[in-house]
Every structure is written in structure tokens, then in C-alpha cells.
Design a protein around this nucleic acid. Structure first.
Lengths: 107, 107
DNA sequence: CGCAATTATGTCAGATTAGACATTGCCATC
DNA sequence: GATGGCAATGTCTAATCTGACATAATTGCG
């Protein structure tokens, strides 16, 4: 019960009620977020290294500048799928990605 | 299904010919799929290593047995997000995940 | 400063994915 | 060849994510 409700709320908005908000993302959620951040950094890095603007990358991705901005910000409306596709689209190899992920090692 | 994929690829901006449907997938799409497969294998591996049934893992995840089956099959209705959350939920570390991803190195 | 280019944020309709459930298939053990 | 546990597949509806657009905010330059 409690868990169901909590899970639902968390999925709905990352923002769950009380004190757990700040300290409290579950450890898994926390890791998940860090993973996303690490990949997001990777996208920005590779994009800039290639001298592309967000708009240019967006075109490559068949998306929009605003979404690229969100990708790089690891916005909560951006899925891992999109993040990963972006990375692949700018030429990241699985090896590169693995390296990024190691970057997300627990604090 | 084929049509779904086709639509999706087209939406993403790929030119999809008939041959592509069977053999081809763009290199990126291909890598993406391999990535998913690698992670899916990881889920199964870790689950079995812990002696859990799909139903048991499902409960842990707040999901259903059928979805876990699809996760492990890297079904196309399963997102990377779900895959990753599953991995984290059964205790995979970023390091473990990085290792899995290296496994998806281009054929 | 003014201006252009780039990046960030908010919103929405439409597309995609989620969990649930029903059903079926698969192997064991009896 | 029945029974039982586990895994796979299809299909719903609700929830989430996406690209697009509008619009700020930021940065770099003359």
C-alpha cells in the first residue's frame, strides 16, 4: 500500500511529499538521476567538441533545440532512451558510454 | 510491429527501405538495440544469481511478472529507463552497468 | 549599451510506454 | 498424463515522454 502509493507519486513527479524529498530519493532513484546527469554531461561534451549548436544537434536528432537543452539538463521529462539515442547519434561508442556511466559512481 | 518500427524510424528521420526492415536498422538503431539486449541479459543474470523469480522481482519493482519477462527479452515496449531501473533495483552498480554496456561493443 | 546567436523554460497535443490481467507454453516431478 | 511453478505473449487503459512552439534568459561582440 504505502509503497504503491509512494511509487506512483514518485513516478508522477519526482516530488514526494515530506522530508524525503531532499534527502530522500531512494538510493536507487538517486543513482538513476546521477546516471542521467552523467550521460547528459556526455552529450554536451561531445556536442561542443564537435562545434555543434543545440539547434544543429536537434536537427540531426530529428528533434528541437528546446529538447536538446532539456537533454543536456537531464530534465525529468527526458528519458534515458532519448539521452542514449542522443549519445549514439553524436558518435559515442558503447565504450564511451560505459566510461560516462562509471562517472556516476556512488558519492 | 514491423509497421510500428517503421513508423518510428521514419519519424526519427531514417529512410526505411524494405531491406532495412529485415537486416538493417540504422547503425545507431542497431547499437541501441544491442545496448538494450546487453542490459536485459544483465537483469536476468542478476535476478537468477539472486534466486528470484520474475514474479518476485516484479514485486520488488512494483511491476508485474509479464513486464519483467519483457524486460529480460528487451521487448520493444520496454524502455531503457525501465531496464536501468530494474538493474539498479537488483543491486547493479554503475560499474556493473558500465561493464554490461561494454559488452554491447559493435559486432 | 544594442544586437544576434545560443541556450533555457513552460506548455500542449499526440505518440509511446507502463502495469495489469488473461492466456498460453514449458519443464519438472510425481 | 496430470498437477504445479515459472516464463512468455497479447492486449487493454492510464501514465509518461516527445517534438514543437512561444518565450525568456544568457552570452559574445561591435
Amino acid at each position: 500500500m504505502k509503497n504503491d502509493k509512494r511509487t506512483r507519486l514518485e513516478r508522477a513527479g519526482w516530488v514526494v511529499g515530506d522530508a524525503t524529498v531532499f534527502l530522500g530519493l531512494s538510493p536507487e532513484e538517486q543513482r538513476f538521476v546521477e546516471l542521467k546527469l552523467a550521460l547528459a554531461r556526455g552529450v554536451r561534451q561531445l556536442r561542443e567538441r564537435q562545434g555543434l549548436t543545440q539547434a544543429a544537434l536537434a536537427k540531426q536528432l530529428g528533434s528541437s533545440q528546446s529538447r536538446v537543452a532539456k537533454i543536456e539538463a537531464a530534465d525529468k521529462t527526458v528519458s534515458l532512451d532519448l539521452l542514449m539515442r542522443s549519445l549514439l547519434s553524436i558518435g559515442a561508442t558503447p565504450r564511451d558510454i560505459a566510461k560516462l556511466i562509471k562517472t556516476a559512481e556512488a558519492a
